[in-house]
Design a protein around this nucleic acid. Structure first.
Length: 488
RNA sequence: GCGGGAGUAGCUCAAUGGUAGAGCACUGGCCUUCCAAGCCAGUGAUGCGGGUUCGAUUCCCGUCUUCCGCUCCA
């Protein structure tokens, strides 16, 4: 990230080069929704594929990774966005996401309607809210952070359902299915990538707080005794993942939550945070939360919605003493054959935002430098120094000039490399202009066919970050580029 | 949700109650042998809706989007 990087420049580049557009722009736009353009979709796919490769598909079940307490298995899921409404009631989301609020037009304060009598009036603390002479309260208004929809064509309260506000619940409700179909044993993880929806009151800061967003979540199930060790492992493992893809450590940090900051069910939470340019100096924004959730989730889906009672989590009861929001009643505990012991697994949840990650990579990669033009005068350049693994285009192929058979040779190189990578061909305009365009797109390598190619079958291979060129035999390109793309 | 600012071409800006201009970018042609070159030509805009007016991009109202500050925040 350049020192003078601003969100304005990032947003402008994203639009200019086709990374990210505002949703429904030709109709005036819609707040909190974003579209990924031709380059953006490649970037985001690369991020998701890197995550899936590194966490799931490439995971070795047979031996412990560095610093892991033991070997473990990883499997994936792709669950539905709309689920049984009871899922969200048992999980606690329904209550936490739904509130009636009243606003005071005089003092601009907002109060929960069900707790109105408990608030002092901000202007006259001796009286309660709404009871001062100048108080001017609105009617109670519904705030629901979950998007509501109807299943089936009939609009009826019994058909109400919600777009999921997180992908995690799809994993918990499939816990038994995974156990009974895959032969995995604890400890193991279930991973999922998918869209989630939250009706944010104030979407802001480009894609950082969107109403529709994509999560990359792992629910890792382990024994209560080992859960602390696994929590530490995942916290550090996930932080390393971001640095391995190019986020600089001084823009990235791991922050353990204070006990008071944690959700009521959490035994420990750490955020992986990035110093986004839209934040004040020294402040960080969340990319991923790694949470030790204890047995809260599986218990909720067994017994019903849980609330805290002192040190205990207990099922919330209604007036008749029955569970207010019953769980499934299914037994989600785990029987350990080795120890002949039955327990409800504890859960470590590394939950990452794919869109926030993409935005962080874009911010980190954005740079402005100066390189000499043909007269030796320094010219400003905008370059995206994206890690080769996530760069939308890996290689661009150019003929130096549009004659002497150079386009034909360049096109054949393009077609050959296209078999393995996303490659771009361009023969229009000056060579310098073509290099600059690729620099803004984050393309790590450019290949140019020149007159020497005609004599000895070599081309120049230009490095995006240094602009240095070297000559490589056409036959060696596949190997050389493959090596560089996977170098770090 | 509240208060304030802002919306003219892809970008940066101009202008006017009476045919909306420029630079850059983009497209095509010529030229061009390594870092945004040159020449010629071209595409392209007043966020949306309503009102006032003979006529509104301009004035008024609403709305949407966006920025800043509050508020909220799973």
């Amino acid at each position: 990230m350049a020192d003078n990087t601003t969100m304005e420049k990032i947003v402008a580049l994203c639009k200019r080069r086709g990374f990210i557009f505002q949703s429904s722009e030709i109709y005036g736009g819609i707040g909190g929704f974003w579209d990924y353009g031709p380059l953006g979709v490649e970037l985001k796919r690369n991020i998701k594929e890197a995550w899936w490769r590194d966490m799931v598909a490439g995971h070795d079940d047979t031996q412990a990774p560095p610093n892991a307490p033991s070997a473990y298995a990883m499997v994936g899921l792709d669950t539905s966005i709309i689920m049984h409404p009871q899922v969200w009631k048992a999980s606690g989301h329904y209550d936490q996401f739904y509130d009636l609020f009243v606003d005071c037009r005089t003092c601009k304060a907002r109060f929960r309607a069900d707790q109105l009598g408990e608030y002092p009036c901000p202007r006259k603390p001796s009286r309660r809210a709404g009871e001062g002479e100048d108080c001017d309260l609105t009617e109670p208004r519904e705030f629901n952070l979950m998007f509501k929809t109807y299943v089936g064509a009939l609009i009826d309260p019994t058909a109400e359902a919600y777009l999921r506000p997180e992908t995690a619940q799809g994993i918990f409700v499939n816990f038994k299915n995974v156990l009974s179909t895959t032969r995995v044993k604890i400890p193991f993880g279930i991973a999922q990538i998918g869209k989630s929806f939250r009706n944010e009151i104030t979407p802001r800061n480009f894609t950082f707080r969107s109403r529709e967003f994509e999560q990359m979540e792992i629910e890792f199930f382990c024994s209560p005794e080992e859960s602390e060790d696994w929590y530490s492992y995942w916290r550090d493992r996930r932080l390393d993942w971001y640095t391995s893809l190019g986020l600089r450590s001084d823009n990235l940090r791991l922050r353990e939550h204070e006990p008071a900051e944690r959700a009521h069910y959490s035994c420990g939470t750490a955020d992986i945070e990035y110093a986004f340019p839209f934040l004040p100096e020294g402040e960080f924004g969340e990319l991923e939360g790694v949470s030790h959730r204890g047995d809260f989730d599986l218990r909720s889906h067994m017994e019903g919605k849980l609330i805290r009672d002192g040190d205990e989590l207990v099922v919330e009861l209604d007036e008749e003493g029955k569970p207010r929001y019953p769980g499934s009643g299914k037994d989600l505990s785990y029987f350990d054959e080795a120890t002949k012991r039955k327990f409800i697994p504890h859960v470590i949840e590394p939950s990452a935002g794919a869109d926030r990650t993409a935005l962080a990579f874009l911010c980190e990669a954005y740079d402005e430098d100066a390189i000499p033009d043909e007269k030796g005068t320094l010219q400003e350049r905008v370059v995206l120094r994206l890690h080769p693994r996530i760069a939308p285009i890996k290689v661009a192929v150019f003929p130096l000039v549009k004659k002497d058979g150079m386009p034909e040779i360049a096109a054949s190189i393009y077609r050959e490399l296209k078999k393995r990578w996303n490659v771009f061909y361009d023969e229009k305009g000056s060579i310098g202009r073509r290099y600059r365009r690729q620099d803004e797109s984050g393309t790590p390598f450019c290949i140019t066919v020149d007159s020497q190619t005609l004599a000895d079958d070599t081309v120049t291979l230009r490095d995006r970050d240094t602009t240095k060129q070297e000559r490589v035999r056409i036959d060696d390109l596949d190997g050389v580029i493959g090596e560089r793309l996977t170098a770090n």
